[in-house]
Simulated assay, not measured.
Amino acid sequence: MNRKVLAAVAVALLVGLSGCATISVTAEVGDANTIERYDLNITTSTTVYGWLNEAAKEEGYESLRDQMTDDVDVESDRIEYSEEIDGDEATINIQLSEIPSSEMDAITLEEDDGELTYTDTAFVNESAQSEETSELGGEAMSGLVLDYTLHMPGNIVESNADEVDGNTANWTRTGGEAYTNTHIEARSEMPSALPVTGFGIVAAGLGILMFTLLLTRTRKQ
């Protein structure tokens, strides 16, 4: 995902002095080359949302949507963007679908010896890890929560996740480090190819049925 999105959120949290936000990510890997779905959801206060809008315009964008999707080089029918205000809560959602991993700024997929490794460094920001920046943003970003869920195409054999269940891994991080120092990585088995497709199974079944009927008729003769 574009790091500019997360940078904009961090600035709003610091300047807005209302550092409560939950960033939820759900990623689903299709194969060694494709991210089937990458869903980024930001839930925060309307105060932070207002600062995000203002910051986007100061950066020269016509809208928050333009900033959030800037440099996301995908076809328009593969990206969905929405904003929702409910009382004092604002929600921003960006969903990408069927995207080649080569088009994802911070994500890499590497296949080796029957296994697939997924890496997402969108939440690694070395410049924000300095002592000065950490002291400045520590209190303002104490309310930041990151929930990250990853679905791999096969069982996960190794990861740095908090929880792993079959082909699903989950990470939960809080505070400033959630944005600056969360490295997402998981390695899974590649699913074995089926010997025949569903159509092949149907065709085989029909073939057996026809053979049985032919054998029955021969015996009757």
Rank of each mutant, 00 (worst) to 15 (best):
L144C: 10
S130Y: 01
T180M: 09
S130T: 15
G175A: 05
T133V: 15
G143N: 01
N181I: 00
N181K: 03
N125I: 12
S134E: 14
N170V: 10
H151Y: 12
S130P: 04
G154S: 02
S142A: 15
V157Y: 03
E177D: 15
M152Y: 08
E163K: 11
V164N: 02
S127T: 13
L146Q: 04
N125G: 09
V124K: 04
E126Q: 11
S127G: 09
L146A: 07
G154L: 07
V164A: 06
G176R: 11
T168S: 11
S130G: 14
N170D: 04
L144N: 06
N155L: 01
E132T: 15
E131A: 15
V157P: 07
A169W: 00
S142G: 06
A128N: 10
T182C: 08
T174N: 10
Y148L: 08
W171Y: 10
V145C: 01
A169D: 01
Y179V: 12
N125Y: 12
T168R: 09
G175T: 01
E126D: 12
N125R: 12
G143S: 03
N170A: 12
Y179M: 14
R173A: 13
S159Q: 06
V145P: 01
L146Y: 03
V157D: 05
T172G: 06
T182S: 14
E158F: 03
L144S: 05
M141I: 10
S159P: 08
G143D: 03
E139G: 09
E139L: 15
E139M: 14
Q129S: 11
S130V: 02
T172Q: 13
S134W: 05
A178F: 03
E135H: 02
S130D: 11
T174A: 08
A178P: 04
L150D: 04
Y179G: 03
G175R: 04
F123P: 03
P153G: 08
Q129G: 10
T182K: 09
A178G: 15
L146P: 04
W171K: 05
T174M: 07
M141V: 04
V164Q: 06
T168M: 10
V124S: 02
W171S: 05
L136V: 14
G176Q: 12
Y148A: 00
N160Y: 01
G137A: 13
W171H: 07
S130M: 09
G154N: 04
D162G: 15
H151G: 13
V145I: 12
T168E: 11
S142Y: 02
Q129N: 13
H151M: 13
V157Q: 09
V157A: 00
S130W: 01
L150V: 09
E126G: 06
G143W: 06
G154D: 07
E135P: 00
M141K: 01
M141Y: 02
G175M: 06
A140P: 09
T180H: 05
T149N: 07
H151L: 13
G176D: 11
G137W: 02
N160S: 07
E126Y: 12
